[in-house]
Write a protein that binds this DNA or RNA. Structure first.
Length: 277
DNA sequence: AGACGTACCTGACCGC
DNA sequence: TGCGGTCAGGTACGTC
């Protein structure tokens, strides 16, 4: 589910609902998600006040007033919601809950358990924060930077922009969407796409920005922290549309697999042959 | 070094 | 109805 727009939407929603709140209790319904919950998680969290909830790449950072900071990831199927205690109906895969000072519950639900919550000071968390590229919506991500970064890579352009090293936050869906907008074949080598860095830069920023404005995309079980659904999925130009007509040229959208993931593209608008080498 | 495959885990869906 | 196979938005690690 969650790529940058979805994580950003969750961060904004949680921030509105939880910032400034003290945590009265921390309930762990199992010992681990992707990683074991830290032994001292409850000790560090109970009684602390959540100062802010922010996003870095696809990670969520919960800053506490005791100097600690939690680093969480939604994985592929994670959701975070804040609900009134009276409305809370426990579900399978509600792995971690915070009881807030006003009685509401923060619920971290994740069927596949690719998500996690760690203390940011843990080495696992540090490892993941290292090696991250610039935020796509920051000034660090410039067309000049992108051009230089692309020139260094031989891998397919789609793999490169999804890799989190060149730029963060772009996952499988928005990689396909950005490449369609930039009219670049997902199969071309990143270095060969360098001349089109300006166009790709604009495409990435535009698609992420529009998706954030739409509250993210709701596929399968993604929901915002307030329970509302995102609706950017209705604006996909290529993702999940194989066989359907291209919105620009009407020729059928095609699908292929790259590094084990589905890629969607328009062979007419994103020609490979004319642009390789 | 870089590119690929695989693993982690559950659920939904499809065809038989 | 039930079974097996396939697929799913992410990341890290092993292997050539």
């Amino acid at each position: 589910m969650p790529e940058l727009p979805e994580v950003e939407t969750v961060a904004i929603g949680l921030s509105r609902q939880m910032a400034g709140m003290q945590v009265r209790d921390c309930i762990l319904n199992r010992p681990n998600m992707r990683f074991a919950f830290p032994d001292d998680l409850q000790e560090k969290v109970i009684g602390a006040r959540i100062e802010s909830i922010t996003r870095r790449a696809k990670y969520l950072r919960f800053a506490l007033d005791n100097g600690e900071s939690l680093l969480a990831h939604l994985g592929m199927s994670g959701t975070m919601r804040v609900v009134e205690a009276a409305d809370y109906a426990p579900r399978k895969h509600d792995h971690l809950l915070f009881e807030l000072e006003d009685g509401r519950l923060f619920v971290f639900h994740d069927p596949r358990r690719f998500g996690f919550m760690l203390l940011e000071s843990q080495s696992e968390a540090q490892k993941m924060l290292n090696n991250l590229g610039p935020e796509p919506l920051s000034a660090d991500f410039s067309p000049e930077y992108l051009e230089k970064a692309l020139l260094k890579r031989q891998m397919p352009i789609k793999t490169a922009i999804m890799g989190q090293r060149l730029v963060v936050g772009v996952g499988n869906i928005y990689a396909s969407e950005a490449l369609f907008r930039a009219e670049l074949s997902p199969e071309m080598k990143a270095c060969d796409a360098a001349p089109y860095a300006g166009k790709l830069h604009s495409a990435i920023i535009a698609v992420l920005g529009e998706a954030i404005a739409s509250g993210g995309s709701t596929l399968r079980d993604y929901v915002r922290s307030d329970g509302d659904l995102g609706y950017f999925q209705h604006h996909f130009a290529v993702y999940g549309r194989s066989g359907e007509p291209c919105l620009r040229c009407k020729s059928p959208i095609e699908a292929l697999r790259q590094a084990g993931r589905s890629t969607f593209f328009c062979p007419q608008c994103q020609p490979f042959s004319s642009r390789k080498t």
